[in-house]
Design a protein around this nucleic acid. Structure first.
Lengths: 347, 347
DNA sequence: TTGTACGCGTTATCAA
DNA sequence: TTGATAACGCGTACAA
């Protein structure tokens, strides 16, 4: 304020508009929000003056009164993974249509940062949170407590079950089984698996699908060919190098992986080792990210509908926010096999 | 509220903590904000009870008083372009360190959506906005008016100049000239250019760099070989097909492009046409996105430091917010040449 | 050291 | 149809 009581801050308030018109704030508020019980002519005058003065409603004040911010938090583990930007695009699509804004936070697979972000989102009083857990999110009680504070949560892609929280994912286990079955159909017997971290659902589910396929086909599972790894190129390359170091008779003739980045890392390792794909070793991924179709050879993989996951997750969260009795749901979108060259198929 | 005046809403307020302790809200507020003049023992008791009750400060209320939200808006044109997620990662890095949250909005290259998003961000009273303009953002007056409302703005990557707004970009023109010079050095003479939309800075600057290189080398510019295109794979493919349709003697022996996606589209067109890269036609990109190194042949391109652009832009915005007299600045980060196979070099 | 009063910008409620 | 008042949750300024 200056000495004479005028604002120095340029932002026009309802009160100022009202003063300029010689009306009460309530009348102005009603007019600007298209409420009934305002004289049409008064309303018109108000709208004109408000526009002329450059009035913008202050949502902070509105939120304080209404206990609603029309804001949702989005917590993702790594925006650098090509899958997530697509998910975010889907979330943005739905939430912007519904006039919600999204707070994006990137945990960098760091559970501590994830927790701090969520605390900050709570302080900002978001109406709900979409979460894909970081690898290290093993502390289930955190999300349980979070849920008990009453905030609406929906998990996507990487979920924690049995917490009464909805989850939007894909049919990881079935898809993983299918792509492994495809390798088996192509005649491979010594199939290895680069397994993701068991702390995240996708790690566990995809590994389970892999095991099912082998078991169903009557192929004995050689545990030495299952290598636990991370979710990045570097992790995949390292893990593949371990497999390549096996005695020649134990070396796999095909490799299934937890995701495309690890498959791409593995491809690099195989090439550097001097072997051919798929002639010496076939390989398949999981994600169908943007590089899968252009790598040499093109990567057979599972197409995860990232954009749809985002849309569905956002939709479910908005329903959960706006509908008192929205049921808890586990949605599995269909992720389908995309056959390219890396698996030794030509069909 | 229920009839007896108790909250049904689970969120605990300062007042409730105070009531539980038989103290005033002020004492509780002071204790929880580590202010002086609180009896250490009282403070301890307060902190314990607050934690037990699950109290979280309400930033909405704080913001209303302080006129600061510790929130910034990020407006990007297309999160599907691999460049932008990396920028966002940089922005998140800086802003989360400073305890700011980011509102992410994706305009999908749609100026109307961009404007709506920015209005919404204003209503939410963000402390500042980071903007990379959509292709269609030709209405300079919009940003001029926006700036006049007093909100802090910083442009990144795609800027509008002469508005007194800081810009964090890369040395587009120089880098574009350098990569073109590299083609010239490799002996190419009939160099074509897939030019981006002239409405965005990157379109204009990179084309200017291309022209400079040819002019400096005394090569006459054949305007038929400059094709205006969009920024996506499809655009690049279309534009390349136009060049391939030229009479054989006019067909380029090398192509420079406005960005990697258009280069990738062009590569597809060239391959489908049955020509070899770089033997028949050399090609270079601009961005160094994630696919550039794995496409066949690997793409010579300009490495744009996306993550650093994000960090610098966020840093500049935070300084502009927190520092009354922060100067307007045009920052050009260095984007350097990455030589791979597609340009016919082996060094 | 602790407490009271007030205001931030808006809307719900009740009165005129 | 319009207006006065209180309230949302918190912190500043001042008083006790």
């Amino acid at each position: 304020m200056t000495k004479d009581g005028k604002k120095t801050n340029g932002i026009v308030t309802l009160k100022e508009v009202a003063a300029a018109l010689g009306l009460s704030t309530m009348t102005v508020s009603r007019a600007l929000n298209d409420r009934p019980n305002v004289n049409p002519e008064t309303k018109k005058r108000i709208q004109e003056v408000a526009t002329k003065m450059g009035y913008t409603p202050n949502h902070v004040a509105k939120s304080l009164v209404s206990n609603r911010t029309y804001t949702i938090g989005v917590v993702i583990p790594e925006i650098g993974h090509a899958f997530f930007p697509e998910v975010v695009r889907g979330i943005d699509e739905i939430s912007s249509e519904a006039n919600y804004q999204i707070f994006l936070t990137n945990s960098s697979e760091d559970f501590e940062k994830e927790k701090r972000s969520i605390e900050a989102l709570r302080a900002k009083r978001v109406d709900g949170i979409l979460v894909s857990t970081s690898i290290k999110s093993t502390d289930f009680s955190f999300f349980e407590n979070l849920k008990n504070t009453g905030i609406k949560i929906v998990f996507f892609d990487r979920c924690i079950y049995n917490l009464g929280i909805s989850c939007i994912g894909v049919n990881d286990r079935v898809a993983s089984r299918q792509i492994t079955e495809h390798l088996i159909k192509n005649g491979y017997k010594k199939i290895a698996y680069l397994s993701g971290p068991p702390e995240v659902t996708i790690g566990r589910e995809r590994l389970a699908g892999f095991r099912e396929a082998l078991t169903n086909a009557g192929i004995e599972i050689n545990e030495d060919r299952i290598v636990e790894t991370g979710l990045t190129e570097i992790d995949g390359k390292e893990a593949m190098n371990k497999l390549l170091a096996l005695p020649k008779q134990d070396r796999p003739d095909a490799v299934a992986t937890v995701n495309d980045p690890s498959a791409l890392g593995a491809i690099e390792a195989i090439k550097e080792y001097g072997l051919s794909i798929p002639e010496d070793i076939a390989i398949v991924g999981f994600t169908n990210e943007v590089r899968a179709s252009i790598i040499d050879p093109p990567l057979t993989t599972i197409n995860q509908p990232a954009y749809d996951v985002g849309k569905r997750a956002a939709y479910k969260l908005l329903r959960t926010i706006e509908n008192e009795n929205e049921p808890v749901e586990n949605v599995e979108l269909i992720a389908n096999l995309v056959i390219r060259k890396s698996c030794g198929s030509n069909s």
